[in-house]
Amino acid sequence: MQALYAQLLVGLINGSFYALLSLGLAIIFGMLNIINFAHGALYMMGAFCAYFLLSVGGLSYWWALVLAPIVVGLFGILLERTMLQRLAGLDHLYGLLLTFGIALILQGVFQNYFGSSGLPYAIPDLLTGGVNLGFMYLPIYRGWVVIFSLAVCVATWFVIERTKFGAYLRAATENPTLVRAFGINVPRMIALTYGLGVGLAALAGVLSAPINQVRPLMGADLIIVVFAVVVIGGMGSIMGSIITGFTLGVIEGLTKYLYPEASNTVVFVLMVLVLLVKPTGLTGRAA
C-alpha cells in the first residue's frame, strides 16, 4: 500500500509535464488551428536555454524559469510571424507538416552542436535534498515541480477564462472577422498566443532540466504521448487538458508499478478506448 502512494505521487509529477505541454498545445490549437508538432522541440529548447543561462550567463535556475519561456516564446513569435502566419486559411495539415519540419530542423541543429549524450544541469541548491514522507523519500525538487506547474496551469486558465485579454482571445477564436471589426489587432493576438503556448512548453523544459538529461531528442518521443493526451482530453477546454494531463500521469504511474512493461503504451491504449466510447474526447466538442 505504501508503495502505491509513492507511485501515485510520482505519477503526479509526470502528469505535471503532460499538463503543461498539452495546455500549450490546446491554447495554440484553439487560436491558430494548428497542431504544433514543434512543441517537443521547443520544450527541448527551454531546457537548453536554462543550461546556457547558467553556463554562459551565470544566471541561476530561478532566472531560467522566467527568462527561458520569454526567450523561447519570442522565438515562437518569430516562427509565427515568418512562417505559420502564411498558412492561414489552408488546411490544418499544412500546419502540422510545417511544424514537423521545424521540429526536425531544431533537433538536427541542436544534435550537431551539442551531441547526443546531452548536457548536465544540477538541481538548484534551494531545492536539493528530500523529505521522508514515511511511505517514500520525496526529493524536494519533485514536490516543487508539482506545485509550481499546478500553479502555472491554474494561472493560465484564469488568464484565458477570467480576464479581458482571455475574453478577446476566446472571441477571436470563435469569429476573428468580427473581433477585428471591434478594432482588435487579431494577427498580433495570434502571435502572442503562439508565444504563450510555446512559452509554456519552454517552462516545462526548464522544469525538467534538473531531472532529465538535457539532450536534443528529449522532446521527440514525449510529444507523441502528449498528442495522445490531447486526443483523450479533447481540445475543447483549457481545464480539460490540464485535468487530463495530471490524470494520465497518475494512471501511467500506477502502470509502472502494476505492469511496468506496459507503462509506455498505457496512454495509447486509453486513447483507443476513449475514441471507441466517446470519439470527441472526454471534454471535447464535436469537430
Partner: peptide, 9 residues
C-alpha cells in the same frame, strides 16, 4: 520500456 524519461517509480 525503451526511451523512458521518468525512472522514479
Amino acid at each position: 520500456p525503451l526511451n523512458t524519461s521518468d525512472f522514479s517509480s
